[in-house]
Every structure is written in structure tokens, then in C-alpha cells.
Simulated assay, not measured.
Amino acid sequence: MTYANDMPTVEKVARTDAGLASELRLSVMRLRRRLAVERHPDNELSMNAMAVLGALHRFGDLTVGDLAAREKVQPPSMTRTVNCLVDGGHATRRRHETDGRQVVVVLTDSGRATVLSDRARRDEWLATRLRELTPAERAVLRSAAPILERLASHE
């Protein structure tokens, strides 16, 4: 029979790299789901569509291929997402300036407003949660944020 006292604690599990990987995976996934819940109730766009709008806002006009590579999806999937964004007025297409064979996806004012309001709502929720932490805990997260970004960006 196993008792609660015999179960490994988070501290014990996270002492190994495998344990740390498991704890980080679970925590990051739960935080992502929680942030997804904080979307504006009127925002009907998928998380994938919001990621594309975010990429266009952050990096400027991009080809469908560039967006697909950045979001780690196949070009046909990205084309479907872009079609939805264009149909909804969140993005437009234009010919590439130097390569007429390529199409560039451009963020519209509506798309920009959607990204900014969505980010503001989620940032406010997270900022509220962060204020509940101690200064030392917030300092740890400040140090961890660029490391997590590096892990997420690693090929």
C-alpha cells in the first residue's frame, strides 16, 4: 500500500533533469491553458490564429512560408489560418516587393487592435497574479523568463 508520505514531492522530483523537465512541462502547459481562458469573450479567433496575428505584429509582414516555419506548422495549414484572418478582416495579402511569385501577409488595423486588446487582457490577469508573489519569487521569474524563451525558441 502506498501512502501520501511515500509519494515523491515536487522538490525531490525536480532535483533531476528529468524531474525538472516534467515539472516545467506541466507548469507551462497549465499556465498556457489558464492564459487561454483569459481571452476576451468576444474574441472568436483560435489560438493558432492569434499566434499568427502576434507574429505579424511582432515581426511585420511575413510570407505564408515564413509564418508556417515560425509557428511550426505545414504551409497548407498556415494558408487555411491566413484565409480565415483575411476573411475576418484581420489581415490582408499583397505581392512580395521583390519576388512577385510570393505573397506577403499584412496585419490590418483590426488585426492589430485584436492582438493588443487580447494581450492587454491576459497581461493584466498575469500581472495581478504576479503581484501576489513575493519580491524574491518575482525576481526568480524575471531571471527565468529569458531562459524559458530560449528553450521555446530552440530548434
Results as ranks from 00 to 15, higher is better:
residue 27 S to A: 06
residue 27 S to M: 04
residue 28 V to S: 01
residue 30 R to N: 02
residue 30 R to Y: 00
residue 31 L to I: 05
residue 31 L to G: 01
residue 33 R to M: 06
residue 33 R to F: 05
residue 34 R to S: 03
residue 36 A to W: 04
residue 37 V to E: 02
residue 37 V to T: 00
residue 37 V to G: 00
residue 38 E to S: 04
residue 39 R to L: 01
residue 42 D to N: 12
residue 43 N to W: 05
residue 43 N to Y: 04
residue 44 E to T: 03
residue 45 L to S: 01
residue 45 L to W: 00
residue 47 M to F: 02
residue 47 M to V: 06
residue 47 M to W: 02
residue 49 A to N: 06
residue 49 A to G: 06
residue 50 M to T: 00
residue 50 M to V: 02
residue 52 V to W: 13
residue 52 V to D: 08
residue 54 G to V: 00
residue 54 G to N: 08
residue 54 G to W: 04
residue 56 L to R: 04
residue 56 L to M: 05
residue 56 L to W: 04
residue 56 L to N: 06
residue 58 R to K: 09
residue 59 F to D: 11
residue 59 F to V: 04
residue 60 G to D: 01
residue 61 D to E: 12
residue 62 L to M: 11
residue 62 L to W: 08
residue 62 L to G: 03
residue 62 L to R: 11
residue 63 T to K: 02
residue 63 T to P: 00
residue 63 T to C: 02
residue 64 V to K: 07
residue 64 V to Q: 08
residue 65 G to Y: 00
residue 65 G to A: 01
residue 66 D to L: 06
residue 67 L to A: 15
residue 71 E to C: 12
residue 72 K to F: 11
residue 73 V to T: 14
residue 74 Q to N: 10
residue 74 Q to W: 11
residue 77 S to W: 07
residue 77 S to E: 09
residue 79 T to H: 14
residue 81 T to Q: 13
residue 84 C to E: 13
residue 85 L to H: 14
residue 85 L to D: 06
residue 86 V to Y: 13
residue 86 V to K: 11
residue 86 V to D: 07
residue 87 D to S: 10
residue 88 G to A: 01
residue 91 A to Y: 03
residue 92 T to F: 07
residue 92 T to L: 14
residue 92 T to Q: 12
residue 93 R to F: 10
residue 93 R to T: 11
residue 94 R to F: 07
residue 95 R to Y: 15
residue 95 R to V: 14
residue 96 H to F: 09
residue 96 H to M: 05
residue 96 H to Q: 05
residue 96 H to W: 06
residue 97 E to D: 08
residue 98 T to E: 11
residue 98 T to S: 10
residue 99 D to W: 11
residue 99 D to V: 08
residue 100 G to E: 15
residue 100 G to H: 09
residue 101 R to Q: 11
residue 102 Q to H: 10
residue 102 Q to Y: 07
residue 104 V to Y: 12
residue 106 V to N: 13
residue 106 V to M: 07
